[in-house]
Design a protein around this nucleic acid. Structure first.
Lengths: 186, 186
DNA sequence: ATTACATGTGTACGCTCGTACGCATGAGCA
DNA sequence: TGCTCATGCGTACGAGCGTACACATGTAAT
């Protein structure tokens, strides 16, 4: 006896299960942190039996790597597109401001995921690679409009502004973000 | 039988044990992360029996809070002193540069502890209070020499610079740090 | 010297975890 | 139709965890 019969679903044939599991993993990380992310928690979030985790992934590290890869790539893509579209330096500055103030700090965007990635990457080589690929990509995008030194510095500034806002009870307003970036770039 | 007799120390009467445990906790956090920090790991690091943890602390949260409080206060103290000693704005800029380039980024300084604190604080109210007290204190120190907007912005910049350096395989040099800060403040 | 109590120590309990693995099942192909 | 195997499912196992708690011991007050 395993307890009350668990609502016998007959959910065979679930083609995008792997994808759904990766999304569920991101949701769990955002809610409970990497430390609170377990096979069981992800399975519960995706409404899938525990045994399914072993089948689709090689282990927890595997899931984390796939989840964070998806997360960073979706950010990097937007970053790339906006900066590629910019034609002048002023447009590039505007693109950066918009990205940070409107996208990274928008309520729907789970800023905490980024910090979680950083910490996890400190001790997980695979996640470190994910982090670095991402940093490289955003710096490459910046270098198209700014000299390498400026690109690196503004990259760090963006990091600090978002992190600061993510953790403060009194987050910076979009106007303050704009002021800080423009002060640096104009 | 518990296994090989564990080197019968007679270590009774250990007056600063609590202090040593807090230091050991910081060492364990730096090495294994908050997620890998357990009573047993700290006890091992301090060479103390497991039972001692229960006696000296109310739980793991209690230890973490005390450890991070010690960590942030030791940084804040230096920050305060240096900025209080500065008499002119130029001296204040110099103090900030030195703090970041020489202290925060020095090899002995465990930068990763800061990031660990941030992540842990996101889900632990007590640690959130520790983080905010620290941020407030460093901003107060900056406000003695810079206007509030500048103080807040440079605070974020420092955050980004140190974080960036902590995670990159190609960390910024002290000269690059100096360049970034001076560009912003002069 | 006796006592009281703060401190130190060892161990046990119940829990959750990652992972392995045997069995079930149904989709796609011959 | 019948076969086959990728996929799905349930459960079990051993390990490590936080915590509680009974007992030991040394200090300091009387």
């Amino acid at each position: 006896m395993t307890g009350a019969a668990p609502a016998r679903r007959t959910r065979r044939h679930d083609p995008h299960r792997r994808d759904r599991l990766i999304d569920a993993a991101l949701a769990v990380i955002a809610e409970h942190g990497v430390a609170g992310t377990t096979h069981r928690e992800i399975a519960r979030a995706a409404d899938v039996p525990l045994g399914s985790m072993t089948y689709h992934f090689d282990g927890l590290d595997d899931i984390l790597a796939e989840a964070f890869t998806r997360h960073t790539e979706s950010i990097a893509r937007v970053f790339d597109e906006r900066l590629t579209a910019a034609r002048t330096r002023d447009e590039a500055v505007e693109a950066v401001v918009t990205l940070v103030a409107d996208d990274l700090l928008s309520p729907g965007h789970d800023l905490i995921l980024t910090v979680e990635l950083y910490v996890a990457a400190a001790r997980n080589p695979r996640l470190k690679a994910v982090t670095q690929a991402w940093m490289q990509r955003s710096r490459d995008a910046l270098v198209r409009h700014f000299d390498p030194t400026t690109a690196r510095e503004v990259d760090a500034l963006i990091e600090g502004l978002t992190l600061h806002s993510a953790l403060s009870t009194d987050p910076m307003t979009p106007a303050q973000i704009r002021h800080a970036i423009e002060r640096y770039l104009r």
